[in-house]
Amino acid sequence: MRRQQARPGTDAVLLARAAEEETRLNAALSIARLGTFDWNVRTNEVFLDERSHEMFGLPSGQPVTAFDIFGRIDPRDLERVSSEVQTAREQQASLETEYRVRRPDGTIRTLVSISNAVAGAEGELERMIGVFNDVTERRRVEALLRAERDRSQDILDSMGEGFVLVGPDFQVLDINGAALRIEDRPREEIVGKSFWEAWPGSAEAELGRLCKQAMAERLPGRLVHEYVWPDGHKAWLELRVYPSQDGLALFMRDVTQQKQAQEANAHLAALVVASGDAIMSFAPDGTILTWNPSAEQVFGYSAAEAIGRPVSILMPEDRAHEPASNFARVRQGEMVKFESVRRRKDGSLFDAALSLAPMRNPDGEFSKYGL
Results as ranks from 00 to 15, higher is better:
R7H: 10
R7M: 08
V13S: 00
E21K: 13
E22M: 11
A28L: 13
A28D: 03
A32I: 00
L34Q: 13
T36C: 12
E45A: 09
L48M: 08
E54H: 05
P59Y: 00
S60A: 11
V64L: 01
D68T: 04
I69R: 02
G71N: 01
I73A: 00
D74Y: 01
P75L: 00
S82W: 03
E84H: 12
Q92V: 00
L95R: 05
E96G: 06
E98G: 00
Y99P: 03
R100Y: 03
R103E: 03
T107I: 06
I108E: 05
V112N: 01
S115K: 08
A117P: 10
A117I: 02
G120W: 03
G120C: 04
G123I: 06
M128V: 10
N133L: 12
D134P: 01
R139G: 01
R139C: 04
R146K: 09
Q153P: 03
D157A: 08
G162V: 06
G162Y: 11
G167R: 07
P168V: 15
F170M: 14
L173D: 07
L173H: 09
I175L: 14
A178R: 05
L180T: 04
L180Y: 06
E183Y: 09
E189C: 01
V191W: 07
V191G: 07
W199M: 15
P200N: 14
G201I: 10
S202T: 15
A205N: 13
A216H: 15
L219T: 12
P220R: 08
W229M: 05
P230I: 10
G232C: 10
H233T: 07
K234G: 03
K234D: 04
L237W: 12
L239N: 12
L239S: 14
Q245Y: 15
F251H: 13
R253G: 10
T256I: 04
H267Q: 12
L268E: 07
A270E: 08
V273E: 09
S275L: 00
A278K: 00
A278T: 03
M280K: 00
A283P: 02
D285L: 01
D285T: 01
E296W: 05
V298A: 01
Y301W: 08
G308P: 15
M315P: 05
D318Q: 14
R319T: 11
H321F: 10
H321S: 15
H321A: 07
E322D: 12
F327H: 07
R329G: 08
R331Y: 04
E334Y: 01
F338V: 14
E339F: 00
E339Y: 02
R342N: 02
L349V: 06
A352E: 04
S355N: 02
S355P: 06
S355W: 05
A357Y: 11
P358F: 06
P358G: 05
M359N: 05
N361K: 04
N361T: 05
E365I: 10
K368L: 13
K368P: 02
G370P: 02
G370T: 11
